[in-house]
């Protein structure tokens, strides 16, 4: 006999699924802006990777080149990027503030905030996921690695807001720009936080796929199917 157990409240699911298109729009419009002054590189030994190479903004696969079509183009769209970015910034900020307020007021922050043993747990989760450790790590709603990841992403979101305002209004909020290390540093941090979201997204998708349908379904319906007898103490 199986029964349904509520895993994610309606509010949490709304915050989560609204954030997805909002953050995607922020990253996309951010790229349109970044293109105008794409100064960052990754140095790996003697390798120097330019972020981003020309084909990234304007991919022209050989098959399409003859027709002169690009798959998409992210170049020469600075004005458009700014218009989208500064509009969706509000949605991103409001959704984030409501989410954090909700976690605090509902007490659900206790399931998300890392605990004393979360860091040790997280290590075990990583070892388990890499098939280096057999035993399944302890898990309540979230395991240690999830607690750290989901808390870190909120802090990163806050960091993006702060560094974003520091770049957007460096005169009116000169104190904020100074606080995050100056205009150039703010831009650097803003960029790498975004790269952090992309990394988070990739790992997140991998883990969701690994966890299976029942888990994913709980994020859309709110409920997970559980065995009647497996009651968690």
């Amino acid at each position: 006999m199986k029964r349904l157990e509520e895993k994610h409240t309606l509010a949490i699911r709304w915050f989560h699924w609204l954030n997805f298109p909002i953050l995607a729009t922020m990253i996309w419009s951010g790229l349109l802006i970044y293109w105008a002054n794409d100064v960052y590189h990754i140095h790996l030994g003697s390798m120097n990777i330019h972020l981003f190479p020309g084909w990234f903004y304007h991919p022209k696969p050989a098959a399409l080149t003859k027709k002169g079509h690009a798959l998409w183009h992210l170049d020469y769209r600075l004005a458009e990027g700014m218009a989208w970015h500064f509009f969706f910034f509000w949605l991103f900020a409001v959704n984030g503030v409501l989410y954090v307020s909700y976690l605090i007021l509902s007490g659900q922050w206790r399931e998300v905030a890392p605990k004393k043993n979360s860091f040790k747990d997280a290590l075990q989760v990583v070892l388990h996921d890499l098939h280096l450790r057999k035993a399944k790590p302890a898990q309540s709603k979230y395991n240690g690695a999830q607690r750290i990841a989901y808390t870190a992403i909120v802090i990163m979101g806050f960091g993006s807001l702060v560094t974003g305002v520091a770049i957007y209004k460096p005169t009116q909020f000169a104190w904020l720009t100074r606080l995050v290390g100056g205009y150039e540093t703010a831009r650097f941090l803003h960029f790498w936080l975004t790269m952090g979201y992309v990394a988070f997204f990739l790992v997140h998708i991998m883990q969701v796929v690994r966890s299976g349908w029942n888990n994913f379904r709980s994020m859309i319906t709110g409920y997970a199917l559980v065995e009647e007898e497996t009651k968690q103490a």
Binding site: K2, L4, T221
Partner: peptide, 19 residues
């Protein structure tokens, strides 16, 4: 945290409908 299931529905049917 349990939602009341329709009498005629099993938990599986219920979550399939919700999904």
């Amino acid at each position: 945290n349990q939602i009341p299931a329709k009498k005629t529905e099993t938990a599986e049917q219920q979550i399939r409908r919700m999904s």
